[in-house]
């Protein structure tokens, strides 16, 4: 694996996203195509990102560690800190071009595409885990728990782990 290229791919993914997990589809595409990461590593990193403190966007740091060790994690950190600095020129630009329909339209179109491409990643992740009936039931169960907004994410994932151990252990 080529670390500068890994850094560039992470930077690109973060640059063309407007949220912490918006970089998932692009990285998933690039790293799997090169054979630098597995479906399982993506799932693991996303779960760590949910469990650890701070923004869930830190999942990339976990992925960086899994595929490139400490250096991978630190490169991931730099790759996610640089793009948000563009908020400074965006803030300036916004004061000139606020409410322009093209600007609003671009953001909405990109946000929709993030959702559309993210669904494909979810399907791939599930396929990697084995698309059995029990998996589908866990998916529906965790959606239901999440929708209540009362159950902490950590607890939902822990329940998933428990079901996994009982069903497959």
């Amino acid at each position: 694996m080529n670390l500068p290229v890994l850094f560039f791919l992470m930077l690109k993914a973060s640059l063309f996203s407007t949220s912490g997990t918006g970089n998932v589809p692009s990285l998933h595409d690039d790293l799997l195509a090169r054979g630098w990461a597995t479906e399982r590593q993506f799932a693991e990193a996303l779960a760590v990102g949910q469990v650890s403190p701070g923004p869930s966007g830190l999942w990339v740091i976990s992925l960086g560690y899994l595929v490139g060790g400490m250096r991978g994690a630190l490169l991931a950190l730099v790759a996610i800190v640089l793009p948000p600095l563009l908020i400074l020129p965006v803030e300036r630009l916004y004061r000139h071009a606020q409410e322009h329909p093209a600007m609003e339209g671009f953001v909405r179109g990109m946000s929709l595409a993030v959702v559309g491409t993210f669904v494909v990643v979810l399907i791939d992740l599930l396929r990697g885990a084995g698309p059995e009936m029990s998996s589908v039931l866990i998916v529906l169960g965790s959606m239901a728990l999440g929708a209540t907004r009362r159950v902490p994410v950590v607890l939902t994932l822990a329940l998933g782990a428990l079901v996994g151990i009982i069903a497959y252990g």
């Binding site: 997990t21 779960a47 949910q50 998996s135 998916v139 999440g146 329940l159 998933g160 252990g169």
Partner: peptide, 24 residues
Amino acid sequence: VVQAALRGVIPASVGLGALMAVQL
């Protein structure tokens, strides 16, 4: 045991991701 647990954690986090997609 971790691999077995992961086979439950992956669908659970896919579920949370799907919920997020709906909410987005």
